[in-house]
């Protein structure tokens, strides 16, 4: 994800001229990041796959609007907007609110890293991850977006600003509120957590 495509500018140029294969090389490079972003925002795998696919189609059709800079941030911006469209659609026709969904990881969540040491540790780690994901999902969507872009996707403040259209000050304050929100939420499951949480809660 963080690795860069060496010939990315050339690929973008070729894709702009209609070279679909060049564009698909970019897709393969960014699809995990885009899917993860969309999945974390929407919280639902099926919808996330649809929205991610749409985002790449939109990106291809609007390649001429890309004006240099971080291509990843540009693609993420398109994916982010597609997510907002999807959320708006859901609000208009509320089927299931993603915040109310049970932890998606039970049946269809992301595969866990395969190097689980012991079954007990693996189970505990899985439980912790579920708690973290629940806490992220509990955030307001605008905070969750910034948090996902920063702490899951690894974008810096400027890239987040580029991806969301927010100014740097708003990125900074939303991210801090999102982190504080997750941190407060995680205290509810302190027995799972590293000692820093437990020490803290004993004092209060």
């Amino acid at each position: 994800m963080a690795s860069r495509l060496e010939n990315e500018p050339a690929l973008i140029q070729a894709a702009r001229r209609g070279d679909l294969e060049a564009f698909n090389t970019l897709v393969l490079h960014y699809q995990d990041g885009v899917y993860a972003l969309v999945y974390r925002i929407l919280g639902e795998p099926a919808a996330a796959a649809d929205v991610a696919q749409d985002a790449f189609i939109i990106a291809y059709r609007h390649l001429r609007d890309y004006r240099g800079g971080s291509f990843r941030a540009w693609v993420f911006r398109i994916a982010t907007n597609a997510c907002y469209d999807e959320l708006r659609r859901r609000k208009r026709r509320p089927a299931t609110l993603f915040d109310d969904l049970p932890g998606a990881e039970a049946d269809d969540g992301p595969a866990l890293a395969a190097d689980a040491p012991t079954p007990e540790q693996a189970a505990q780690q899985a439980e912790l991850n579920r708690a973290i994901e629940r806490c992220i999902r509990a955030l307001q969507s605008d905070q969750r977006l910034v948090l996902v872009l920063s702490d899951i996707e690894g974008l810096n403040y400027q890239e987040i600003a580029d991806s969301t259209g927010l100014n740097l000050g708003t990125v900074k304050s939303r991210l801090s509120r999102a982190r504080a929100g997750v941190r407060a939420c995680l205290q509810a499951v302190q027995e799972l957590l590293p000692s820093v949480y437990r020490l803290n809660s004993e004092r209060e």
Binding site: Q31, D32, Y35, A111, E133, L147
Partner: peptide, 14 residues
């Protein structure tokens, strides 16, 4: 902790 969440992979090629 957030950063340590298992990475999500695209379920298929897009």
């Amino acid at each position: 902790l957030i950063h340590g969440l298992p990475p999500v992979k695209a379920p298929r090629d897009f």
